[in-house]
């Protein structure tokens, strides 16, 4: 058999795999869309955040609600010793007050 025919067959087999994956994808997506109401109901009933992927540490289980100190335990230089901490980016601490700027003290009487 010519080499180019063998290549053709290989590519067809690959295409078949791709098609299987595509069909499976559609099927799973459809299932997901049909069942999304269940996830939403649960979320409405139980207002907790985040997915239950790792329960190794509290701040990892609900990392969106974690406060700044917990990943670092008792002091700032302490390292995160839970391996799953490697995976998650830190939460949004944007509402924390900005660092203190040193300068003339504000006039307390005029407010």
């Amino acid at each position: 058999m010519r080499h180019s025919s063998k290549l053709g067959i290989t590519l067809l087999a690959l295409l078949l795999l791709v098609l299987v994956a595509a069909v499976d994808y559609q099927h799973k997506r459809r299932e997901y869309v049909e069942n999304i109401w269940m996830r939403k109901s649960f979320q409405r009933a139980v207002g907790l955040t985040d997915l239950s992927i790792t329960t190794a540490a509290r701040y990892l289980r609900h990392y969106s609600l974690g406060d700044m100190a917990t990943p670092f335990q008792d002091y700032p230089a302490s390292l995160d010793h839970f391996p799953a901490g490697f995976v998650y980016s830190p939460p949004d601490f944007s509402e924390f007050p900005k660092p203190v700027k040193f300068g003339p003290l504000p006039n307390l009487t005029s407010n």
């Binding site: 997915l51 239950s52 790792t54 329960t55 190794a56 990892l60 391996p83 799953a84 901490g85 995976v87």
Partner: peptide, 10 residues
């Protein structure tokens, strides 16, 4: 890698 040390995982 995502589960880490936890014993309960989905």
């Amino acid at each position: 890698i995502f589960i880490g040390w936890s014993t309960l995982y989905p």
